[in-house]
Design a protein around this nucleic acid. Structure first.
Lengths: 149, 149
DNA sequence: TTGCAAATGATAATCTTTCTCATTATTGGG
DNA sequence: CCCAATAATGAGAAAGATTATCATTTGCAA
């Protein structure tokens, strides 16, 4: 038996719940992801994972990220720039969306229930059930007195 | 001299209006694009262009598509599948959005002014001016009476 | 028509992601 | 606790999409 004093990250728990074999590398990647609140690409994820476990390979990061996506643990995003980026999948509550700062490239998350239901309504009216929404808006900061980097 | 009875496509006209050099290849690609009402990728565009002018190179299609995008003539889209897809940019009126059929992968365009203004409002409230909206929803056809395989 | 700058074609190079395969690690059963 | 079956990993090759290179050709203004 294993005592519960090796505190697995929330995502590692999820990994186990889905019946996925919990290897050291997956534990590491799950930890790194649980620890991130941004939208890293694989290269960045690999950098962070190596900090925790230097013997990890980038091939494993690619494999794991794909596995997690297929199991609903991660969501893949495309913000341009040619590389896929990842974030922890939302729970059962409302989706969230992304505003991309046109100047800095920074990604800002937002939620909006009115938007949720409007989209669901539009899709329903077209004869479909909504499965996924991919929405990112690009915006330029309103010049309002101060400057912004 | 050339008489004005070789009717350039609308996109070729636009190309000229932007001060871009109007080469034979660009004329061909512009024609093919004006003739398309779907969302072809570069490979598909190349296939269609070769039908019109067999001496065109795929490198030129890549270059032209990028040039047109930089000049606001085309919009690049990502519907998954690893290849960029292109469509003629909207005029000054409302954007349009995309519903992707989860079963067939077909892309269905739609417009919605309520959505337009809701998005603009949200973005404004966050301190930004809306530049671009990238929205595609994935939906599954509602089973309505009959069975579905 | 002529010349020059820019575009093109063919292909090499680059970049991201997936695949291959020999080696290693995990997990369940004795 | 140990073993074997089985799946995961590492390293690098391979694939797929896109961009860069460079010699040659072409559009366009004078």
């Amino acid at each position: 038996m294993k005592e519960p004093n090796s505190p697995d990250s929330p995502l590692a728990e999820l990994c186990r719940q889905r019946g996925l074999k919990l290897t050291g590398q997956r534990r590491t990647i799950a930890f790194v992801l649980s620890d991130s609140d941004d939208h890293p690409d694989v290269e960045e994820l690999y950098r962070r994972a190596v900090e925790v476990d230097p013997r990890i390979s980038i091939a494993t990061v690619y494999r794991t990220v794909r596995l997690f996506e297929e199991n609903g643990i991660l969501q893949r995003r495309d913000f341009g720039g040619g590389r896929a980026r990842y974030e922890v999948a939302d729970g059962d509550q409302g989706d969230h969306y992304h505003l991309i700062d046109a100047d800095s490239g920074r990604v800002i998350e937002f939620e909006n229930t009115e938007l949720d239901s409007l989209l669901a309504g539009i899709v329903r009216q077209m004869g479909y059930d909504l499965v996924t929404t991919r929405l990112s808006v690009v915006g330029r900061p309103k010049a309002k007195g101060g400057t912004r980097d």
